[in-house]
Amino acid sequence: MARDRGEQNREWYATYKDDVKKEGKGFFPYAMLHDTIMGFVVVLVIIGLAIIWYWDADGVEPGVLGPLYTEPADPGTTDFVPRPDWYFYFLFYLLRIFEWPETVVIATVGIPTVLLILLLGLPFYDRSRERRPSRRPVAMIAAVLTVISMGVLTYKGATATEALGSELIVLVPEWAEEKGFADNDNAVEGARLFAVSGCLNCHIYLGSGVGALGAPDLSDVGDRYDQETLVRYLTNPAEFGNTVMGSYAYLGQENLNKLATFLDASTSDDG
């Protein structure tokens, strides 16, 4: 009875081929009929979605399936909440769970890579012949858990709301008082820029913001850098070894100066 797995597999597969040949039905026309009907259903569903999308939306005004397009891309305005297509929501939400400093890599690279390797390797570590779901409890439980967690993450990602810049700007007087720069006009201006420029889509400042992509809390950033260095940092984060954050040079030198003044004033000993 101690035949090797390969021989056993070949024997089982030979039985399968034999059965298909003797008892099977023709792919054409029987299976192909089902396929063709299904193909039509798919195309009709796609057309239906397109029609609903188009008739219910008007330009940038969203309908039940969203807008036809949003405003033109503008690197300058930043009270826009970045949002990927729905099938990346799970990844999008994972970023919230893992935070600064190094663990964010687990969400962006670690988990997707592990999932991909687990998927690719599936036929090589699950090698039993058993196909009945009732006899594959481990596989079924793993599958159900995967589906549930993907579903929950997708739902959380879909319903997550980030604060908009226009909402954050009301916090500026509070920040100014807490950090004691209320009489420094440049710093207040910088704080407003900070609120509307999307900084808090990644960073945290005095409890506001997202803390995504490993961006640090900037409440006391003035302890670490001086004004001049901050301008340089904002112009070219890569110079400081930061390859995640993009350059904010497009804000212009004057704005960068204000922003840096605000950040420089954000120290732990004010108050």
Partner: peptide, 10 residues
Amino acid sequence: DQTAYWATVV
């Protein structure tokens, strides 16, 4: 558009 641009930045 804005959606496209900012999602891609992220």
